[in-house]
Simulated scan of single mutants.
Amino acid sequence: MEKEASLYASVGGLEGLRRLSQRFYELVQSDEVLASVFATFPPDHVEHVAVWLGEVFGGPPGFTEHYGGHQALLASHLGLHIRDEQRIRWLALMSRAIDEILPGRPALHRVLMAYFDWGTRIAQQVSQQPSGTDLGDPGPTPRWDREGLVREA
């Protein structure tokens, strides 16, 4: 039996994730619900998201090695006060970006959206805490595969 490709390989590696992230943030810039949330994000945000997703989906540990890992990702959401409406719109725009960048792959779309649903719930929860909140040690960067969350050994 042939082993399925990692999610990282299935999305086209880091280049595929850059395209996905770029398209998503193009959609966000003109969205009346989300544009204000992302207005102050630095220009390298798209790259950071691509590297984060790469690590989560089974690629190299670039986010942990270069950007501070899981702790830094969670801390970046502190104080954003993400509302339900914003989380739902985020998911809708990401779904659209997946359809545009990775068309005709419903199984891949489903597993990616399962991750994004899970991740946006955590981001929304953390975002209610003020900037500078000590989140403790959230553990290593989570890994996601076609079955869902993979626990680190």
Rank of each mutant, 00 (worst) to 15 (best):
F116Y: 04
I88F: 00
A123P: 10
A75Q: 09
W118N: 05
A97P: 09
L112E: 08
I98L: 15
H77P: 12
L112T: 12
W118G: 03
P103M: 13
L78T: 14
V126G: 09
V111R: 14
H70N: 09
P106H: 11
I101T: 15
Q86A: 01
L78N: 14
A75M: 13
L112C: 11
L73W: 10
Q71D: 04
R96C: 07
A97Y: 08
A97S: 13
R89M: 00
R121W: 02
D117F: 11
I98M: 08
I122E: 04
A72Q: 06
A92H: 03
R83C: 00
R83S: 05
R105Q: 15
G69H: 08
Y115E: 09
F116L: 10
T120F: 09
H109M: 09
D84G: 02
M94H: 06
L80Y: 08
R110I: 05
I122D: 04
G79Y: 06
T120Q: 08
H77R: 10
Q86G: 01
L102G: 10
R110V: 13
E85Y: 00
E100M: 08
M113H: 10
S95W: 01
E100L: 15
A123W: 02
F116R: 05
I101D: 12
A123N: 05
P103C: 10
E85F: 00
R89N: 00
R96G: 06
P103L: 09
R89D: 01
H70T: 02
I88N: 02
I88M: 00
I122K: 06
I122L: 14
R87G: 00
H70Q: 10
P106Y: 05
A123Q: 07
P106F: 08
L112P: 14
V126R: 12
L80G: 06
R110C: 09
A114D: 15
R96I: 14
G104C: 05
D117L: 14
W90E: 00
W118C: 03
G68S: 05
L73E: 03
A107G: 10
Q71L: 09
H109F: 10
M113S: 10
M94D: 04
W90V: 01
A97N: 12
I122W: 03
D84C: 01
G68V: 04
G68C: 04
M94S: 03
L112H: 06
A97L: 07
R87T: 01
G79L: 05
P103Y: 07
I82Y: 03
G104R: 05
P103H: 11
F116E: 07
L112K: 10
G104D: 05
A114R: 11
I82C: 01
L112D: 08
L93Q: 02
R87S: 00
Y115G: 12
G68N: 04
R89I: 02
Q125R: 15
E85Q: 05
A72Y: 09
Q86K: 03
D99E: 14
R121F: 06
L91M: 02
D84H: 00
W90P: 00
I101R: 11
W90A: 01
L80R: 13
G79T: 13
G79C: 15
A75C: 15
F116H: 13
H109W: 11
L108K: 07
I88T: 02
L73R: 12
W118D: 03
L78Q: 13
G69R: 06
R87A: 02
L74F: 07
M113G: 11
W118A: 01
H70G: 02
L73N: 06
R121N: 08
V126E: 05
H81E: 10
H81N: 14
P103T: 07
S95R: 11
E100S: 13
I101P: 13
